[in-house]
Each structure stands twice: as C-alpha cells, then as structure tokens.
Design a protein around this nucleic acid. Structure first.
Lengths: 136, 136
DNA sequence: CTACTTGCAAACTATTTGCGTTACG
DNA sequence: CGTAACGCAAATAGTTTGCAAGTAG
C-alpha cells in the first residue's frame, strides 16, 4: 500500500517532520498559518512558503489530507481513517465525527449511478454544544 | 411564485435576474467567471464584481447555493432541494445526485453527538461514465 | 557531492471593495 | 427623486513560485 509515489523519494527535513508531528497531535484541523505561527517558536526563520510546500508534499504522499471546509482557507488533518466532520455554523469549529456505514453508503450510491464510486465525504453542520447553549 | 423577501427589500436589476435565470437553466454548477463570460454576450460592459456581488446577494436570499467543491474556485447552483454531488476525480465534472435518506442521516447523526444537527452535505468522488470508459 | 529543501520576496488567482455614475421603483 | 446596483479599478487574502543559499544522505 506504500511506495507507490511515482516521483522523488523524499529526503527528510526537520521542518516537514515537525509539521507532520504537529498535525498528528492536534485535533483542530489547523490552517497553514496556524502551523506556521506554532512552528515559529521553534524555527524563528521559518517561511510560510515552506509550510505550504511541505503540506502539499505530505498530501501527495497520502500522509495528510486537505479539507476545503467551507471557509476561505484550507485546513489539514493527519487522521487517515474514514471519518466525517461536524462544523459549527456559529463558531466554525470542526470536530471529527465517527459514524459507521462508510462502505454501505458507497455501495448504496454505486447502485444508483453509473459513476464508479471511489469514496465520499460528509460534512454535518449545526451547533456545537457550546454554541447550542448560548443560543440567543 | 414565492415572495419571501426577508430583510433588505431588494430592487431588481437585469443583471441579477439574468444570473438567476442562467443558474436555473444550467446543471453544470458554474463558476462566477463562467457566468460572467456567458453574460458578456448580452451585457458587454458587465463587470465581474457585479457577478460576485449578485451571487452573494442571491445566496443571502437563499435562492442560490455556493459549493466549495474542492477546486480553487467557488461554484454555484440554484437547485434548492436537498441533493448530493458526484465529482469526477479525473475530469472534475460535478453532477447532481439524488439519494433518498437525507433526514435519516441527519437523525442518525443527531443520536450520536451532542451537536445540534442542522443538515449535511455529501460529496461522492469517483469516475464519471465517460472517464470510466477511458480508464487506461 | 548532489539535488532536495529552505527562506525570502515577488507573483498569482479568486474574490472583495471604494468610488463615482446609472437606473429601478 | 432617493438609493440600490452598476462598471471600473485597485485592494485583499490565501497560496504558489523563482532563486540563491543551506543541508541531508
């Protein structure tokens, strides 16, 4: 399942390793800029371009996924198992959401179209528990 | 038809009416620029800013929906009933996809989270019939 | 050594906005 | 008429890219 990267076998870099580590230890689906700000503590000369370049590489390698997420900026996650997202309409927080039935939904869709289904994503929107409480 | 002008009572403009008409008579989920190019035939002095401003107004009124769609640009549709999208991984074409069970999925999700679910979207990705045939 | 990766800065792309003018109601 | 909407052009915002210097293997 690995090593089907058609192109360059990659060298390591402290920056890229750290980006991956950060993504693997946060659940907040960060933006490139959040990662940049965070890493600047350790890499004072870090460039935002480096963050973007590495994120693109990691996505290409299949180690990271990019979410479009409805906002104006891209968000990233390193959680690779199929799962969905809950997006709060008010505060825009994004939480992971595990709901079984991923394959069933694919199969059900496959039966209803001549499209060859490879997968799907679901975004639920609503109010997170915090915003739900504050409902004006 | 319906006349539920909620907040800002809007004046009409030939441009906005035409944008809505275009969106209602196409199934291709066009970009702002596609609409712009298309309308330029009839409105030679049309500005792209006008297209964007009107799309935003129509979205605000609930007459049009914006899709993020995974590409770098926004796409728009005037089909308001709940439905899903099939996106071809190869040629990027987007088709509408009606699959029953919208409410069930909402309810099922609602049972599994403390989020107050308002709705969801599903994007299926795979190969459209054309690309599937050409599969190398 | 070599070529991948970096930091920096400039470029790019899609979208938004300020401003003076036009036109709907 | 009054003001929403327009066209034009400049400004944003997020992301990408060219280049010379640094560094991993």
């Amino acid at each position: 399942m690995n090593n089907h990267s058609s192109h360059t076998s990659l060298r390591h870099s402290r920056q890229r390793d750290e980006i991956l580590k950060l993504l693997r230890t946060t659940t907040s689906h960060p933006t490139a800029d959040w990662i940049y700000q965070e890493m600047k503590k350790e890499f004072p000369h870090l460039s935002l371009g480096t963050v973007y370049r590495n994120l693109a590489l990691l996505v290409e390698q299949g180690l990271v996924r990019k979410l479009e997420s409805g906002s104006t900026f891209d968000r990233f996650e390193a959680r690779l198992e199929p799962h969905y997202h809950l997006i709060c309409s008010r505060c825009r927080v994004i939480s992971d959401f595990d709901m079984p039935g991923y394959q069933e939904i694919n199969e059900r869709a496959a039966r209803m179209t001549d499209f060859k289904i490879q997968g799907h994503k679901i975004e639920f929107f609503g109010l997170c528990s915090t915003c739900r409480a504050q409902q004006s």
